[in-house]
């Protein structure tokens, strides 16, 4: 095997929130090589606008939607959930641990819980009818789709009829779990098959890692 010198800057430069891949691998469904590969991706994302090795909201939104300025409620919510420390940036450890939930091998309960927090807009521990309506309205508006108020009202009411089995006007985590079990498509987006092949995206990096592993 010839020289497999990586041209990656990741060998030399570690971002401010860098964490040991071995530890991250032990806490997530990723292998050490996959965490290393995610670090390559993290470096790209975290230096796309502000070159400080931390993912800012604009960089996250740029990667998700190809724009950094247009307001997107969902990008905001996902960013906030990834930003566990609530310091306005996604650090490497937060990035890996959060993405771990989206791994095909991650526990279903974790995916369901993450989705619940996504919809629990005001973080009250419940999905309330009003906030669900607000989310539907905001997202339809952001995506230039139109449904009449009556139609939205009726869909949200029907959703609550089905999901709010305790009939207290809000969906708690247990009701959410039961609802998801009846509608598994609701957490379809919580699994990224691509994460199983993450190392394939960075072949030069794999070569380097393999050499390191064999040393």
């Amino acid at each position: 095997m010839g020289c497999v010198c990586s041209t990656s800057s990741s060998e030399k430069v570690k971002t401010p929130g860098y964490e040991d891949p071995t530890i991250l691998a032990s806490e997530t469904p990723f292998t050490v090589s996959e965490v290393d590969a995610l670090y390559e991706l993290y470096l790209k994302l975290s230096n796309s606008i502000i070159e400080d090795g931390l993912i800012h909201k604009e960089e996250f939104q740029l990667a998700l939607f190809r724009n950094k300025n247009e307001k997107n409620l969902f990008a905001d919510r996902i960013f906030d959930l990834f930003d566990v420390k609530r310091n306005g940036v996604i650090e490497f450890g937060e990035f890996v641990r959060s993405l771990g939930v989206f791994h095909p091998n991650a526990a279903l309960e974790d995916k369901i819980a993450f989705a619940f927090r996504l919809y629990d807009l005001r973080q009250t521990g419940y999905i309330e009818k009003q906030e669900l309506k607000e989310m539907v309205l905001a997202l339809l508006h952001e995506s230039d789709l139109y449904l009449s108020d009556e139609m939205i009202e009726s869909i949200v009411d029907k959703t609550f009829e089905d999901a709010d089995t305790k009939e207290d006007g809000r969906i708690d985590e247990d009701e959410w779990k039961a609802f998801v079990s009846q509608h598994p498509s609701l957490i379809k987006n919580m699994t990224l098959p691509y994460l199983k092949d993450i190392t394939l995206a960075f072949p030069s990096f794999i070569a380097r890692t393999e050499v390191e592993d064999s040393e």
């Binding site: 969902f74 989310m135 539907v136 995506s143 949200v156 379809k188 990224l192």
Partner: peptide, 24 residues
């Protein structure tokens, strides 16, 4: 219709993290 509010949110939000990996 079986469409529920969460489906609408999911469709209209374009919630799909796979685009994080688009440019490699």
């Amino acid at each position: 219709s079986n469409l529920n509010a969460f489906d609408i949110i999911s469709f209209s939000s374009g919630f799909d993290l796979s685009s994080l990996f688009d440019e490699k």
